[in-house]
């Protein structure tokens, strides 16, 4: 019975969001969209590995991560639409926006490259989402907190899987070490973009929705350095960085990914699938 009451309260909390004005609503919408877009685009990239894994077990593992991320994307899209009381479905948000309207970080849209590149990208990103979801799971926005707590479990698994591979490749053969070091050097260009914040974040910090996300980067760096040390890899001295995902300014790769992903929805407007 107690359990039942606790659950009722929980469901009530899910519905009762913190009081906020339109500015905060839009900020929350944008924030959720960003989370959803990150997951969607990376999920789509991972799905490219389907039937192309270096070993059957890894084919399954990568598909599994892709599935988790599509699921997360769907939940965050649904919530984004609910926040602004829009009738947009998750599918509309996922499939019917233009390139300029996607808010994902540049890291996730980068092509898969080889297996080392994919695993390095996954590790850098999952280390970030693990910390992000840990923080968001304490949000005063109970729905966001609930969705994040669920996503956190999956992010931890993705991080474990990818960081184990980074360590394995860094300590495997000369070739694997070269490949995984190359991946790190290339992807480092997109690290700063992952932590980019804008006025939406500022607004959400003031009302406690994303209170601690600003502290994530040093924690992320500390964790990544540990793994890279175990993997015998060096962070590049090149400090160049590219950013723009948060403003919808992407690398040339995203448009191609969207063309393929949106094909049926665009070719047959209004069709039900």
């Amino acid at each position: 019975m107690t359990k039942f009451i606790v659950r009722l309260i929980f469901i009530k909390c899910l519905k009762a969001q913190p009081i906020c004005n339109d500015e905060h609503k839009n900020a929350r919408y944008n924030f959720c969209l960003r989370l959803a877009d990150n997951n969607l685009i990376l999920a789509q990239r991972l799905a490219e590995w389907c039937s192309k894994g270096p070993i059957l077990e890894e084919d399954l593992a990568i598909t599994n991560m892709s599935l988790d991320l599509f699921g997360q994307a769907e939940s965050f899209y649904d919530y984004a639409a609910a926040v602004i009381e829009s009738n947009s479905s998750a599918d509309e948000l996922a499939f019917l926006r233009s390139e300029r309207e996607y808010l994902n970080t540049l890291m996730v849209e980068q092509p898969n490259g080889d297996f080392a590149f994919t695993m390095m990208k996954q590790m850098l990103f999952s280390a970030y989402t693990k910390l992000l979801y840990e923080s968001l799971s304490k949000s005063v926005d109970r729905t966001l907190a609930g969705l994040s707590a669920k996503a956190l479990k999956e992010a931890k698994y993705h991080l474990r899987h990818s960081s184990e591979w980074v360590i394995r490749l860094g300590n495997g053969t000369n070739e694997s070490k070269e490949r995984v070091q190359f991946a790190l050097n290339e992807l480092w260009l997109f690290v700063d973009d992952m932590f980019a914040m804008d006025e939406n974040d500022e607004a959400l910090i003031t009302i406690g929705v994303i209170e601690n996300t600003k502290d994530i980067k040093p924690k992320w760096l500390m964790f990544i350095k540990q793994i890279l040390e175990e993997a015998n890899l060096q962070i590049t001295s090149n400090t160049n960085s590219i950013s723009g995902g948060i403003k919808g300014i992407h690398t040339e790769h995203l448009g191609h990914l969207l063309c393929e992903m949106q094909y049926l929805q665009r070719a047959y407007p209004g069709a039900k699938w």
Binding site: Q44, E48, C50, S51, K52, L60, G71, M261
Partner: peptide, 24 residues
């Protein structure tokens, strides 16, 4: 897998990927 990237909805994508994963 030839259609995994072009599945028309999120649900269809999840079902197809899960199916391919089952086959593997």
């Amino acid at each position: 897998a030839n259609w995994a990237l072009r599945a028309p909805t999120l649900r269809a994508k999840k079902i197809l990927l899960a199916k391919i994963q089952d086959e593997g």
